[in-house]
Design a protein around this nucleic acid. Structure first.
Lengths: 298, 298
DNA sequence: CCAATTCATGAGTATATCTCATGAATATAT
DNA sequence: ATATATTCATGAGATATACTCATGAATTGG
């Protein structure tokens, strides 16, 4: 069977002119090459070289093989380079899954430096999962999951990347705007605006309203953070969002954040990965970078 | 070093799904494959597969390698096919050199059946040689030499392919047209038309005129056989050509052939090849075919 | 929960490959 | 012309590689 080593031999002999020099360039003895050639020619049933004086000249069959060598050898080398980069974790595709709507703003701040620090790693962000974020991790649809719920499972690894407080966002002229904190009862006459996810996954219900058995007067769902805040600024409702996000928007919009409950709602964002990917350099690179960005936004 | 066998493995595993089936398809034991994979992954420094349940799934590095395999393996196979054809002598390029101008007509009759009998062999005909026909053979400019002069040399092999008589061609109304044979003296008032080669290589000089110390009144050189005969038919001169060729043209032109000297000039055409090419099937095929065509033209 | 199937592993063997020490043929220099 | 250096070829022995066999551990489907 024709092997890469055979292609290397024919290319080396062509490049160096003599068998002896080709041998040294391949870190082999001249004898080894001679034997290898003899064997190959015997297998193929046709000579690849003919002796001309004390040098060798390619036969037609040899020319064909040289053609193949010149075509294939660079491809072997290229892929070897690529695999070396994979081995060092320098190259790959990082598919990020999001289970935390407002985190998108934060994510962008991580992705920008990541892309320049890992120029050979492609990044993709996905937000919809058929079987939830963890399912997407296990089914290799994504490589890293941004989530506030670290559902510990064997095979997964969670890294906390930042803490924040979830606050109520209201119009700056709203009666609740100046308060130190709001109580569940304060919202029974309000219109609540949230991302379109199940209520069990909204902290304002699970950690604030539901324990007090309160519900808002109305509940609207809006996908885009920006629009959501436009609505709040227009006095059309209230929302629950990370404090840092609200503070950012507050510079250009008439909105304010108010603590929910006396203790406030403390949240934490985790990056989940498959344990088997733990050694991937660009993955740990991403997580490390995410930690740095946290302190920046604080 | 990445080898073809590695590409074969990754392709087989991809095609069959399991390592076990891939092993049998490669005529190897499952253990052999497992060892080979382990070693390769260790060399590369990166896993190519990850276990998923009891099956294997490709990593990103593995995907890259599979891509390479799907690209390169068919090329290996194609060239192997080609080399097999070379080995059987079914494929090649036959470069024919001509040292015999009128033989071109005859050669065409050989080439036509040859092309259909050896569909994978390309044919090329060359007529000009820097260092003569034999030099062209030795320098691999041509593979077969059509010549009337078999200059025996070690390393060359000559095969006679046909005998013919070189005759004088005259206009049918010429005074010499009806004669049994002409003598050198008959040509001293004639215009001789020949191919543009040195006189020593023209038989009409070396074997007919020169021994009798005769020269024609005039000597013109014309390259194309057809034009040469047009001139003869128009009574503008006489020429020396193979008898069979003259007889062919005589059917449509007013020309006749006349023997030169009482014995005539007997000629023989040889096909010369390099001894090292003796085993090339398509070469012996050509020579054999040339012999058959001879009897056809006789 | 058992039987079947998967891949992994260690040890021993077979095979292929390489090196060393030559030889024969050819080219180059004296 | 003859010596000398260089080429590729070859045989034998050493070394490294690859393969098989027997078995184990993990997973899956009935």
């Amino acid at each position: 069977m024709l092997e890469r080593s055979h292609l290397a031999i024919i290319a080396a002999v062509d490049a160096r002119g003599t068998l002896t020099e080709a041998a040294t360039s391949l870190h082999l003895s001249q004898s080894a090459l001679s034997h290898a050639i003899r064997k190959l020619e015997h297998q193929l049933g046709t000579p690849l070289w003919e002796k001309e004086g004390r040098l060798l000249r390619l036969t037609q069959a040899g020319e064909q093989m040289l053609l193949l060598a010149k075509r294939l050898l660079p491809q072997f080398e290229h892929t070897e380079q690529l695999l070396k980069q994979f081995a060092r974790g320098q190259r790959g595709a990082l598919r990020i899954g999001m289970e935390c709507h407002p985190c998108y703003q934060w994510l962008l701040k991580v992705i920008t430096p990541f892309l320049s620090e890992w120029p050979d790693v492609d990044v993709d962000v996905k937000q919809k999962f058929q079987f939830g974020g963890i399912g997407a991790l296990f089914s290799y649809d994504i490589d890293i999951l941004v989530t506030p719920d670290p559902l510990r499972q064997s095979g997964l690894l969670y890294n906390p990347v930042f803490d924040y407080e979830q606050v109520l966002v209201v119009n700056s002229d709203h009666a609740l705007a100046g308060k130190r904190y709001v109580l569940p009862e304060d919202l029974v006459d309000e219109t609540l605006i949230s991302y379109p996810v199940e209520r069990e996954r909204l902290d304002i219900y699970s950690e604030f309203l539901s324990p007090a058995k309160c519900v808002p007067k109305e509940h609207k769902e809006i996908e885009a953070t920006n629009i959501m805040l436009q609505m709040v600024a227009a006095g059309r409702g209230v929302a629950a969002l990370p404090k840092w996000l609200v503070e950012e928007y507050a510079q250009t919009m008439r909105i304010s954040g108010v603590r929910m409950g006396k203790q406030g709602i403390a949240k934490q964002i985790f990056l989940g990965i498959r344990r088997s990917d733990e050694s991937l350099a660009y993955l740990s690179g991403f997580i490390e970078l995410a930690g740095r960005v946290q302190s920046f936004t604080k």
